[in-house]
Design a protein around this nucleic acid. Structure first.
Lengths: 344, 344
DNA sequence: CGTATGTGTGCAAGCGCTTACATGCTTGTG
DNA sequence: CACAAGCATGTAAGCGCTTGCACACATACG
C-alpha cells in the first residue's frame, strides 16, 4: 500500500545553473553571463563552464530565466485554426524566424469565428510573452485595453487597420478589391460574380471591387456569401447551384480563396463549361496548387511567409529597443494565368 | 539626448498576486489557493478576492507559477511544418483540448526532413513543458536519452513504434499497407503502382502492401518514390511522366496523400483516361477534398483529431497521476469511393 | 470541561534564474 | 610609484508565484 514506488522510477535530479557552477568552480552569476553573453567571461572560464554543461547535460530553465529577466523570449501566435488555413505559411515563417533567435512560439487558436479569442488572449497574457501576433482576428476595444494594460507588443497581420493598436503588417484588402476591379475592366468583363467569405477582410475586398467597378462604369457584381469555410467542396457546390439556375452565366467568378476557385473550376469542367472561354475564374492566396491546375488559376498572390518574417523581425527589433514602423505594407499582386482571358 | 522618454510611455505596473492580496486584505497564499482550488477558501473570502481581481484586472503570471510548482501547464507540440500538413487536424485538436484544461501549447517545427529536430527539442525542454507531443518525427537514441534525462512525458503520434519511448498514439502503417493489399486483391487489381513518400511511415505501408500482395499471389507493385512533398502538382507530374512512357498503364495507383491522388486523378482526366474504368486511384488521409472530388477519391481515413484528442487526454491523465496506456491504436479505415472499382 | 479534529489563513522558504553593485586584480598614465 | 580605469567575477536581492508547516479558532466528543 504505502510502497514508495512512484509511477516513474526516481530520476536523477535535473541539473541546474547551480550544479553547473559548482562543477565549473565559479558562481552562478558567471555561468548565467556565459550563457547570455559568452564574450564577457574570460575564455578559459568559458571553457570550464562549457565542459561542465556538457558533462551535466544542463539545459537552461527558461521559465526561471524569463521570470527573473521579465523577458520570456516567448511569442504568442494566434490564428483561427491551423486545419486548412491560408495563414499557415505565415505561422511557419514566424516560428522558424523566431526559433533562430532563441524565441519560442505559443500557438493559440481563436476559432473560425473568433469565438475563443477572449480565452486565448487571457491564456496568452498569462504566459507574459514578449509579443503577440494576431492573424485573422479583429481586436475590439475591450481586447485592446486588456493588451495595453498587459504592456505586451502586439502585431496585427494580414490586414492594415486604419488605427492599428500597436503594429500592423499586411496589405490593404480594399486595394486588392480595386486592383481586381481594374483587372476585370481592362479585360472587358461585364458580368462578374463573387463567391465571398463573410469576414471583414473579404468584405473590404468586395468594397474595393465595387468602388473600382463603378469608377470604370461597370455593373456591380452579383455576390454569393459563404457562411463558414472557403473550401474546395463549397466552390463546387456554389457554382453548381448557380449554373443549375439556368440564368445566363457570369463571365467571371472571383473567389475568396484558391480552394474555392479550384472547386468552381472543376465543377465548370465537369459541366463542360470552357474556362476561360465561357467562364473565367480568379482565386485568392496564390497557393501552389493554383499554378499547378490546368488551366492554371489566376490568383492574388499574398506573400504569407513575408508577413510572418516581418512580424518576427519587428518583434525582435522591439525587443532590441528599436522602434519598428507601426505599419508595414507587404503588398500583393495579381498573378495572371490561364483561367482569365488576356487584356483587350 | 538624455531625455527620459522611453519608447513606450510608462505604463502602470502590472498587478501581481501581492497587489490583489493587499486589496482583498488577505495573504498571497490565500489568493493563490483561491486561484488553484477555489473550494478551499471561505466563500466570503473568495468573494473579496474575486472583486479584487476584477478591480485590478489581474492575470496570473504562469511563468512564476510554473517555476514555483514545477508544473508549467505547457505542452510542446512538434511537427515537421504547418504549411500544408496532414497533421494539422491533430494539432488543432491538441491545442483545443489542452486549452480547455488551462494548458498552453508551444509549437515547434522540426522541418520536413526533421533537420531541426535537435534544436527544437532543446528549445522545448528549456521551457520545462509538462509533456512533448511528437508527430511525424523519429526519435533516435540520443534524443530519447535527452528526453529521459529531462523527465518529461513524451507522446509519439501517428505511428505505433515497436518500442515507444514513453507513450504512443497512432496506428500501424504496416497494417494499412496490408489492408490496402487485401483491398486490391479483393477487387482483382493486377498491376498496382505506388507513388510514395520516402519517410519511414510511408515505407512501412509499402512493406505491408508488399507482404499482403505476396500472400495473395499478386505481383509486387511498381514504386515511384518522391523526394520531398506529396503535393497536388507532384501527383500530376509523376503520373504525367508515367503515362508519357507509353508502357501499359497500371490498373491502380496508390498515393501517399490525397493531394497526390487528386493530382493523379486530374492529370488522368486531362488525358482522357477514365477513372476508375481504365485507372483506379487511392489516396491517403481522407481529406475533405477527397470526398468532394468527382469522381470521389477512395482513401484511407485517419482520424487526426482523435489522435490529438487522445494525446491531450493522455497528458492530462499523466498530470493527474494516472498511468495512461503506453500504446493507443486509433485504427484507420479504407473509405471506398468512386475512384476504385467495386469488389468482384 | 479537557482534548481530539477540522477549517481557514498566514508565514516564510523556496523554484532557478538575472543583474545591480561590490570586490579584487591587472594595466595604463602622469 | 600612486592612482584612476577597466576587467572578470562574486554577492545577494529579487522576479511572482506555490506550498509545507504552524496557528488560531470553532466544533465535536467522551
Amino acid at each position: 500500500m504505502s510502497a514508495p514506488a512512484p509511477a516513474r522510477p526516481a530520476a536523477p535530479p535535473v541539473p541546474t545553473l547551480k550544479s553547473v557552477a559548482a562543477l565549473a568552480g565559479v558562481s552562478t552569476a558567471t555561468v548565467s553571463r556565459f550563457l547570455n553573453a559568452p564574450a564577457v567571461v574570460a575564455p578559459d572560464t568559458g571553457d570550464r563552464i562549457r565542459a561542465a554543461i556538457a558533462e551535466t547535460g544542463y539545459v537552461p530553465n527558461l521559465l526561471a530565466g524569463g521570470l527573473a529577466s521579465s523577458r520570456s523570449r516567448l511569442v504568442s501566435v494566434i490564428v483561427p485554426s491551423v486545419g486548412q488555413s491560408i495563414f499557415n505559411d505565415t505561422v511557419d515563417a514566424i516560428v522558424e524566424e523566431l526559433a533562430l533567435a532563441g524565441y519560442s512560439v505559443m500557438l493559440g487558436l481563436s476559432g473560425e469565428d473568433d469565438g475563443r479569442l477572449a480565452t486565448v488572449l487571457d491564456a496568452a497574457i498569462a504566459r507574459r510573452p514578449d509579443g503577440i501576433i494576431l492573424t485573422g482576428s479583429n481586436l475590439s476595444e475591450p481586447f485592446r485595453a486588456k493588451l495595453r494594460a498587459a504592456g505586451i507588443a502586439v502585431i496585427e497581420t494580414w490586414d492594415l487597420p486604419p488605427a492599428p493598436m500597436d503594429m500592423a503588417i499586411g496589405f490593404s484588402h480594399v486595394a486588392v478589391g480595386r486592383a481586381l476591379g481594374a483587372f476585370l475592366a481592362d479585360r472587358g468583363y461585364r458580368r462578374p460574380h463573387v463567391i465571398s467569405a463573410s469576414g471583414v477582410r473579404a468584405r473590404h475586398r468586395l468594397e474595393g471591387l465595387m468602388q473600382m467597378l463603378v469608377e470604370r462604369g461597370l455593373p456591380p457584381p452579383t455576390v454569393d456569401f459563404l457562411g463558414g469555410s472557403t473550401r474546395f467542396g463549397e466552390g463546387r457546390q456554389r457554382f453548381g447551384t448557380l449554373a443549375d439556375r439556368g440564368d445566363p452565366l457570369p463571365d467571371v467568378i472571383l473567389c475568396s480563396s484558391d480552394w474555392l476557385a479550384q472547386g468552381v473550376l472543376i465543377e465548370a469542367q465537369m459541366r463542360g463549361i470552357a474556362v476561360p472561354d465561357r467562364l473565367s475564374v480568379i482565386g485568392f492566396g496564390n497557393l501552389r496548387m493554383a499554378a499547378e491546375m490546368e488551366p492554371a488559376i489566376t490568383s492574388v498572390d499574398i506573400n504569407g511567409r513575408a508577413i510572418g518574417a516581418h512580424a518576427a523581425a519587428a518583434l525582435l527589433a522591439r525587443a532590441a529597443g528599436q522602434v519598428p514602423p507601426a505599419t508595414t505594407d507587404v503588398g500583393f499582386s495579381i498573378v495572371e494565368r490561364e483561367t482569365t482571358r488576356s487584356a483587350a
